[in-house]
Design a protein around this nucleic acid. Structure first.
Length: 271
DNA sequence: CAGAATACCTGCGGGC
DNA sequence: TGCCCGCAGGTATTCT
C-alpha cells in the first residue's frame, strides 16, 4: 500500500484523534507480522497518554511517556480511526482502544508490516538508525545525492529506492519521478549528468509533495484514515500504464524489470 | 565492498 | 466454475 505520501496521509489522519488520548485496552488478534508484535504490548502502553505522532521514512512513530511504538505498514497495511466498534474482519490484527472510546485499528492482509516498541530514541532503533535523508527536506539536494552515489553503477531507479540513500520513494513514485525528470530507469547512476541529477531531485520532491496534497495514491486498498481514497492515481503518467500511450509524445510505454520490480517508462522521453 | 537474488504472506485477475 | 500462474505499494537478509 504505502509509500511516503500514503504514510504521511495516515499520520495526519490519525494524529488529531489520538494525540493526548489515553490507551484503555489493546487487543491483538494476530501477533505474527514481519516480526512478532511484543507479547506484552498491552502492558507496555495501557493507561499511557500519546504524547506525539510523527513519521520518519515510512515508519509511524507514536510516542508515550515510557517509549515509542514503531509501526510500519509494509505492502498492504492500513491504520484507521473507528468511532464505534465495527466487528473486526479477517485481517484486522490489532485494536488500540482509547479512553475516549475511539479505536485505532491496524489491518494488514500480507503481514509485511510491523508493530514494535522501543524505550530509546526511536531514531536510534536498529531499523531507523541507518536511514538516509528525508526527501522533502533541504538535506536532500543534488549535491547530497551526487556525493552519496559517487562511483555507483546501480540503475538510477534502484538508487532512489534505496532507503540508505533517500527514504520514502517506492515503486510508484520512483517511476513517476524518473518520467518527470526524463531519465531512463536503468541508467547507471554514475553516467548521469549533473543536470539530470538536478532534475531528478526536483522531480522527487515535486511528485511526493503533489501526492501528499492529493491524499496519496489509491490503487486497491489504500484509504485515508477516515475511509476516503487518495486521488493521486489520476495523475500517474507511467505507473501501471505499460503498453499505453505516453502522455507527452504518444509512444507506447514499455515495461522492464529492475530489482525484481515492474518499471514502466517512455523510451522516447526518458534518456 | 557493491550488487543481485531471495524471503516473508495473502489476494486478485487472467488464461486455460 | 475452478485451478494454476504471476503479480502486487516494502525491505531485511543472504548470496555472489
Amino acid at each position: 500500500m504505502p509509500e511516503l505520501p500514503e504514510v504521511e496521509t495516515t499520520v495526519r489522519g490519525i494524529a488529531p484523534s489520538i494525540e493526548r488520548g489515553v490507551i484503555k485496552k489493546v487487543t491483538v488478534r494476530c501477533y505474527q507480522l514481519r516480526w512478532p508484535i511484543p507479547a506484552n504490548l498491552e502492558n507496555l502502553i495501557q493507561d499511557q497518554k500519546v504524547l506525539q505522532v510523527r513519521r520518519r521514512a515510512k515508519y509511524i512513530l507514536i510516542t508515550f511517556e515510557t517509549g515509542t511504538l514503531i509501526i510500519h505498514l509494509g505492502m498492504s497495511g492500513r491504520l484507521r480511526i473507528l468511532t464505534n466498534n465495527i466487528a473486526p474482519q479477517k485481517h484486522d490484527h490489532v485494536d488500540f482502544n482509547f479512553n475516549s472510546n475511539i479505536i485505532l485499528r491496524y489491518t494488514d492482509p500480507r503481514r509485511f508490516g510491523a508493530i514494535l516498541w522501543t524505550e530509546d530514541i526511536p531514531e536510534q532503533h536498529v531499523l531507523l538508525k541507518n536511514l538516509g535523508v528525508e526527501p522533502l527536506t533541504a538535506e536532500f539536494s543534488s549535491k547530497y545525492l551526487a556525493a552519496k552515489m559517487i562511483g555507483r553503477k546501480v540503475a538510477v531507479k534502484i538508487a532512489i529506492m534505496d532507503s540508505k540513500v533517500v527514504v520514502g520513494v517506492g515503486n510508484i513514485y520512483a517511476a513517476e519521478a524518473l518520467f518527470l525528470a526524463g531519465i531512463q530507469p536503468q541508467k547507471p547512476f554514475n553516467l548521469l549528468k549533473n543536470t539530470q541529477i538536478n532534475r531528478l531531485v526536483s522531480a522527487i520532491k515535486h511528485i511526493l509533495s503533489q501526492a501528499i496534497t492529493q491524499g496519496g495514491t489509491t490503487l486497491k486498498d489504500f484509504y485515508n484514515t477516515d475511509g476516503k481514497p487518495g486521488y493521486f492515481v489520476q495523475k500517474l503518467n507511467v505507473y501501471g500504464r505499460a503498453g499505453q500511450a505516453c502522455v507527452q509524445c504518444g509512444h507506447s510505454l514499455e515495461l522492464m524489470i529492475l530489482g525484481q520490480r515492474s518499471t514502466v517508462f517512455c523510451p522516447m522521453c526518458q534518456r
